[in-house]
């Protein structure tokens, strides 16, 4: 199959993770892969983001597929069940809200900037080397928080990539679940039948 430009977006995803080690403010760019999938599914009612433009999915496919870093096992049944996928989405959103709250606290001056990246919502990793000033404390706090989200989901995804299939992160990816929910809400079986006729 002919490669298109969007088949190389895994490079952007890898670069994003790398840049976070040098200057945390690059983390703000991650908002693109937060809003774009939602925008695409809301406007077009499709998961074109997952199917085409998601660099993270491509990265897992590459590492787990071509590089063979995957056991290629089936995911456990519970992982593809709706309660787990929706539950994980909910948990993810709550954690995201908490991150925004922390940003607000720094913004209001109630708390000082914490230069840490929190992995798996638990482990606080010192990350001060990647912040060189130049932003308001709240903007930096958001960057640390958002990068924590991105790194955490990457680590989870790498874990299930190794244990199960390369793109098993896609089974419980909150963005994937959210965009599918949006598409489901917009879905009318009759309209689809007519389109296909």
């Amino acid at each position: 199959m002919k490669k298109r430009w969007y088949d190389y977006l895994w490079i952007a995803s890898a670069l994003y993770l790398l840049l976070g080690f040098f200057n945390i403010l690059f983390a703000w760019l991650g908002l693109i892969c937060f809003f774009l999938p939602l925008l695409i599914s809301i406007t077009t009612g499709s998961k074109a983001y997952c199917g085409r433009y998601c660099g993270r999915g491509q990265l897992f496919a590459l590492l787990g597929g071509r590089f063979g870093l995957s056991r290629q096992h089936d995911v456990p049944r519970w992982m593809k069940s709706r309660w787990f996928r929706y539950g994980f989405l909910l948990f993810f959103l709550v954690m995201f809200g908490q991150m925004l709250w922390n940003t607000a606290l720094v913004f209001s001056g109630a708390r000082d900037l914490r230069e840490v990246v929190t992995l798996l919502w638990t482990f606080r990793l010192p990350w001060h080397w990647a912040y060189h000033g130049g932003a308001s404390p709240w903007a930096a706090q958001f960057a640390f928080g958002f990068y924590s989200v991105m790194l955490t989901s990457t680590v989870l995804g790498l874990g299930t990539m190794v244990l199960c299939k390369p793109r098993s992160w896609c089974v419980y990816c909150p963005m994937g679940t959210m965009t599918q929910l949006i598409c489901r809400a917009k879905y009318h079986p009759d309209a689809v039948r007519q389109n296909q006729a």
């Binding site: 199959m1 599914s41 009612g45 499709s46 998961k47 074109a48 997952c50 199917g51 085409r52 999915g57 496919a61 593809k80 069940s81 996928r85 793109r167 896609c170 089974v171 994937g176 679940t177 965009t179 599918q180 949006i182 598409c183 489901r184 917009k186 879905y187 689809v192």
Partner: peptide, 24 residues
């Protein structure tokens, strides 16, 4: 019922025989 509409199948099909319908 358990498809997550990720599109991995679409990418690997040599015949273009599988599509994700409306992201669902």
């Amino acid at each position: 019922d358990h498809c997550v509409a990720c599109g991995c199948c679409v990418k690997v099909c040599p015949r273009g025989a599988v599509q994700v319908v409306r992201g669902v």
